[in-house]
Amino acid sequence: MMQEVLRLQNLQKSFGSVRALKNASLTLKEGEVVALLGDNGAGKSTLIKAISGVFPIDRGDIYVRGEKVSIRSTREAMDLGIETIHQDTSLAPDLSIARNLFLGREPVNLKWLGVFAPLDLAKLRDAASALLKRVGISKKLDADALVSTLSGGERQSIAISRAMQFAAKVIILDEPTNNLGVEETHGVLRFVKEMRAAGHSVLLITHNIHHVFEVADRIIVMRRGEIVAEQTVADTDLLTVESLITGADLSALMKRAQ
């Protein structure tokens, strides 16, 4: 029996009068890839931002490995083993790959100096190079290269390897294949499979249902701030999922057309 890693219970979040999240509940098990689907504005990003501590939730409970937790900052989420690759923001383009990989968790000497502590530059570079090698994104990327010189796919790879390096329990990817080429997209999907193989749990948000069927074990569909369906990939098909997302009964329509 796979152990439960993350459980959300009745999460609620409003922005003014917009109820972005109404009573969302879900569970994520060890070594499982769950796809979170839904139209634009369904509340997917809001849900994962709540889990990753970007903003506080209004109501509801979050359990990590069965223990109730409160996540009040991104730092607390990271400390709980939840790593998130956000849709819009992940890297600082003016910093080197190595500095980005360790942003917020810099290896330092003379730790007692606090924020004034000097970076352990040798360790930073070595760890970054080792990481780049381990995740297979080429011996060719120089850890000292600025992120602004990388392609979209390379940046996404860096963000993903950063999430992997801290051996996070849960990795959340918000539309990671947006704006990527075919090749780069396949690279990202390969990462997702690798992460599952390594025992991480993955929450994947995407608009591409084909990707879902390629990598996911389970599908959760959101509509207008609510979770409206939950299915295992083996027990469903493309049309069903599409109709769940839009809310229209596509398969019925198709049948009628035939």
Binding site: H86, A92, P93, L95, L103, A117, P118, L119, L121
Partner: peptide
């Protein structure tokens, strides 16, 4: 150039949300 704080300062100016998402 050498302190942790400097890394944070550059990251904030470069992409504030990314820095915040890393706990800065």
């Amino acid at each position: 150039r050498y302190a942790k704080l400097g890394n944070w300062i550059s990251a904030i100016g470069s992409n504030r949300n990314a820095a915040v998402a890393r706990g800065v």
